[in-house]
Amino acid sequence: MENMANEKKPFRFYSRFNLQQLTGIKAVTLTQLLKGIKEVPGSVIYDHTHRFLQQHIYLNPEPPNDFAYWVSDVLGDDELAERLASIDTIQFPDIRSLREKIIQTIEGYLDKNPAAAARKANVHEAFHFIKAISFIFPTGYVANDLKEFAEILKVITIEAIYFHVFEARLRLERNAANDFSYWIETAIGDKVLADRIAKLDPYTHTMEDLRKSIVRLVERRGE
């Protein structure tokens, strides 16, 4: 795929869709959940820390990740669920470090609360590890300047915004807060605007709010 955020190049909007693949791995206890988290591919960790966000992009404040939701609603362990839900995903540059944090959180909790390992879900409420296969494709939208950028941002799908904000940063491990900030800084040369967009915590916005916030920042540039 062509790099859509190269210096002196227009911004090419891409999008992505996910297909979910069942791994056949499941857990009914915290110990099994921990084992699964350690062993599954990164694409599985990505799915479970972002699927909720993608499927419930209309909710604000943001709901927890799948692990937190299952620990709370199925195992009924609210303290651990809160610890998992409050992991600040935006701070982790890649899936490896995010996975490590989740493992540390569960292991630390089990060390202090060994009885928690005995809690068991019904088989029909087991946690199923699911992999996200991402299909990335160009949308055909191209912005040559910030005016075009804002106009396109208003009409593209939220999947496209999601791709440039979440997936490109965390899953493709691009060295930037997000693709938009990178392009605005390197191709447009507006570091202030790039930083303002980078400061938005996308995990605490609905996707539509995020779209509006970025458009507003771009349109009010220089004010």
């Binding site: 795929m1 869709f17 996910n18 297909l19 591919p41 694409s43 992999k131 996200a132 296969i133 991402s134 299909f135 990335i136 494709f137 899953r171 493709l172």
Partner: peptide, 15 residues
């Protein structure tokens, strides 16, 4: 996506 997945093996597919 399901039909396309038959022609790729990667977890991240660039179409």
């Amino acid at each position: 996506l399901l039909f396309l997945s038959l022609y790729y093996r990667e977890d991240i597919v660039n179409l």
